[in-house]
């Protein structure tokens, strides 16, 4: 579902990614760990087409990120620590806005379904401005799932969330993965990553230093790469 070949991102003296090659199958659930500046966000930006690689290529569902950006955009959902939500619009209006941008068929039903699933149904007509951080993040996940993406990219999705919200999001992510959605999430919490992912990537100075099934990785293997320079 996700395929990168010798993906590089550099500008002048700064090398953010130094040749990354990996493949993720349908329904895989992987966590991406690394110190700040290791290149995690850069990688997600390259896969989602927000940023262009210096060399190498990336594919999503068989579509090249640079050459067929619209096809790729249709197939990925992104949740970041930023919600991408309009605070002056209600929860429902936000979903309808993004739904129309993605040309979601049966938008009303789809948005109702997601609002119920995220336990936001009673607040659907309230402005997002009045939502707690946890509610906003749940709505952000609903927004990302609206167009039924085959690949879900999450960039530090748990930043600033309470335990209940983390649990809800976790079970939702696992459900999505069981439903054959490929999930790649960057995290800064190794314990969570070990417990909830099935594959673990560790990035260090723009290189992939660990790529193993999560149950084979011990915490001690990861920690050295968490020290910042």
């Amino acid at each position: 579902m996700i395929l990168t070949r010798d993906l590089r991102k550099s500008f002048g003296p700064v090398q953010a990614l130094a040749g990354l090659s990996f493949a993720m199958a349908e329904g895989e659930l992987a966590a991406l760990l690394g110190a700040n500046g290791a290149g995690k966000s850069t990688l997600l930006r390259l896969i989602s087409g927000l940023s262009r690689p210096s060399s190498g290529s990336a594919e999503v569902a068989g579509f090249d990120v640079r050459r067929q950006p619209q096809e790729v955009r249709r197939r990925i959902g992104v949740v970041s620590h930023q919600t991408f939500l309009y605070e002056d619009l209600s929860a429902e209006e936000n979903l309808h806005f993004y739904g129309r941008m993605y040309s979601v068929a049966g938008l009303q039903e789809r948005s109702d379904e997601l609002l119920a699933m995220m336990e936001l149904w009673p607040r659907r007509t309230d402005l997002v401005r009045t939502f707690s951080r946890g509610m906003q993040q749940r709505l952000a996940l609903a927004r990302a799932m609206l167009h039924q993406p085959t690949v879900l990219l999450l960039d530090e999705p748990f930043t600033g969330l309470d335990l209940h919200a983390i649990d809800l999001l976790t079970s939702f992510i696992e459900e999505a993965s069981a439903g054959r959605v490929t999930v790649l999430m960057t995290l800064h919490d190794p314990d969570y990553a070990l417990a909830h992912s099935r594959r673990l990537f560790v990035l260090h100075q723009g290189r992939l230093v660990i790529d193993q099934p999560s149950e084979q990785v011990r915490k001690g293997d990861i920690l050295p790469f968490f020290r910042e320079k």
Binding site: G49, L50, Q70, R73, Q82, F84, L85, Y86, E87, S103
Partner: peptide
């Protein structure tokens, strides 16, 4: 840009 909505827009399949 308050909640990086611009990024959200750019992620949409829009020219």
């Amino acid at each position: 840009q308050e909640n990086s909505m611009m990024q959200g827009l750019l992620l949409c399949p829009v020219d």
